[in-house]
């Protein structure tokens, strides 16, 4: 039951994210959406991931995005709800696409009839110790690769953002 409550919240905030006229409001809805996702992860016993979701996504990435939005200081004209060119085609196809994918998903659920069954025996509590150990043993290589990616991204961002 609590899942459907949270899921409803996530979907609504996600839709509001892409539908808001003002990008600041949009960003805030996205923060709310991510927060709701964090709560969902807590219900899945992924505590570390939930905390990191808040810390990294809501706390760092979205602040950065808000920062940029405010730095750019868009004029009201920019904030208008505008479709892209060829809108009817894309809007139509987009709606069909969305309907199609969602219908497909629902159809699969209906057809397969499978429901979410947690694995027996537990052992999925995402404590810092357990996940951290996994990251530094089994996923040590991806971990290092991701660090290098981060470094490259930082350098790239600085070079791109520095301008002339």
């Amino acid at each position: 039951m609590i899942f459907y409550l949270i899921a409803f919240g996530i979907v609504v905030t996600a839709i509001l994210t892409i539908a808001s006229r003002n990008s600041v409001v949009s960003a805030l809805w996205l923060v709310a959406c991510l927060f709701a996702q964090a709560i969902l992860m807590v219900t899945l016993e992924a505590h570390l991931v939930a905390a990191m979701q808040v810390l990294l996504y809501a706390g760092a990435i979205m602040v950065l995005i808000l920062f940029v939005i405010m730095l750019l200081n868009l004029t009201p004209k920019e904030l208008k709800w505008k479709f892209i060119a060829g809108e009817r085609l894309i809007l139509g196809s987009g709606v069909i696409y969305l309907a199609g994918v969602m219908g497909l998903a629902l159809w699969i659920i209906y057809k397969k009839g499978a429901s979410f069954v947690p694995a027996a025996g537990g052992g999925t509590a995402g404590t810092v110790e357990a996940v951290g150990k996994l990251l530094l043993t089994k996923y040590a290589l991806p971990f290092e690769l991701v660090s290098v990616t981060l470094l490259v991204a930082i350098v790239g961002a600085i070079l791109t953002g520095r301008g002339k």
Binding site: L48, M52, L56, A119, A120, L135, V146, L150
Partner: peptide
Amino acid sequence: SKMHGNLDGQAVVLLLYVLAACE
């Protein structure tokens, strides 16, 4: 991760956060 009863999924998510930050 919950469904299979191991923590691999959560570890991958942590890596994904870093990629999201890069992006």
